[in-house]
């Protein structure tokens, strides 16, 4: 509960995001001050974590993404923005190869994780997913206890000692700012948690695998403003240790939490750059139109 003041601070823009955005479309999203957002120079200096080179993605014959090239810096938040159906979620799922589960999908080009090709035939998909965690749009707790939910990853990785598992669960829940709320009822069903808590539980579950990268598909899009604010605070804290990639169609949110932003439209990466610059001084007309809400 130490974070209450900052919750209040962020409450206002998020309120604007839910109610004011569509009514006042010409307003440019404001960049919050003093929240530790990385500048363009810092971004340029950061180590490259994931590098995407000329990647195209196909659903059987239909090309969903065309020639994407993008660099994702370490310990930063990268946001993918764009209208529905622009391919941003598909792109996100390419990083941990969740698209493999859909039959008839195909990837061209390469995505490198620290120099190793994610789509190489030698890649072990399970190891990959342990290093690149994912949180889904809709929180999906397993119908089990809170403890079992968080300890699932370590358990399948072979950790059986209760004490060790407990330590991991505690650490993960603390990092996801859920520990204080649930520490007395770890054996209760995760389905009894509120929506926002379930979402943080899913984050904790991903963190328990100790990944380097966290993918978030429209985090908090189904949550109330207060819960959203908590998740956004959390993203800010987590980026000190993790490389975070989020997909969002809420421009206010992208402006609040991300260091780097990439704008997608109809399967193309239109523009990418430091959030600061992209939102204040976009280079392309399409980007300008979209972030000011003039998009039709």
């Amino acid at each position: 509960m130490a974070s209450t003041p900052s919750v209040k601070k962020i409450m206002q823009p998020s309120d604007k995001a839910t109610s004011g955005y569509s009514k006042a479309p010409m307003v440019r999203p404001s960049i919050p001050e003093g929240k530790g957002m990385r500048t363009a120079d810092e971004l340029a200096q950061a180590t490259e974590k994931i590098s995407v080179r000329d990647m195209s993605f196909y659903y059987s014959e239909n090309r969903a993404l065309t020639d994407i090239s993008l660099s994702i810096p370490e310990c930063c938040v990268t946001a993918f923005i764009g209208p529905s159906g622009c391919g941003k979620s598909t792109f996100l799922r390419c990083f941990n190869r969740m698209n493999d589960m859909i039959e008839g999908t195909r990837v061209e080009g390469e995505i490198l994780l620290e120099g190793q090709d994610i789509y190489s035939s030698r890649t072990d998909i399970v190891t990959l997913r342990k290093r690149i965690g994912m949180v889904f749009q809709k929180s999906t707790p397993f119908p089990k206890s809170i403890f079992d939910n968080v300890s699932f990853g370590p358990k399948i990785a072979g950790i059986r000692k209760k004490k060790e598992l407990y330590e991991i669960v505690e650490r993960s829940l603390q990092r996801s700012a859920l520990w204080d709320e649930v520490k007395d009822r770890l054996s209760e069903s995760a389905l009894n948690l509120s929506g926002g808590q379930q979402h943080r539980l899913c984050i904790a579950r991903a963190l328990a695998n100790d990944p380097d990268i966290l993918l978030m598909d429209e985090p908090a899009s189904a949550l109330d403003p207060a819960s959203t604010a908590r998740i956004e605070d959390l993203i800010f804290e987590l980026k000190e240790q993790y490389t975070i990639v989020i997909v969002t169609h809420n421009m206010q949110q992208a402006a609040r939490v991300s260091d780097q932003a990439a704008f997608f439209y109809q399967g193309l990466l239109v523009e990418s750059g430091a959030t600061e610059e992209l939102f204040t001084n976009p280079k392309k007309q399409q980007t300008e139109d979209y972030i000011t809400g003039r998009f039709g």
């Binding site: 399970v126 190891t127 990959l128 997913r129 965690g133 889904f136 999906t140 089990k144 990853g153 399948i156």
Partner: peptide, 25 residues
């Protein structure tokens, strides 16, 4: 399917997903 997707995203193999999540549920 969200249960299966979540388990896969956490690095579970197909059998681990079935044994630890799908079958108990």
């Amino acid at each position: 399917d969200s249960i299966r997707r979540s388990a896969y995203a956490l690095g579970a193999t197909r059998w681990q997903t079935v044994w630890y999540q799908v079958l108990p549920a």
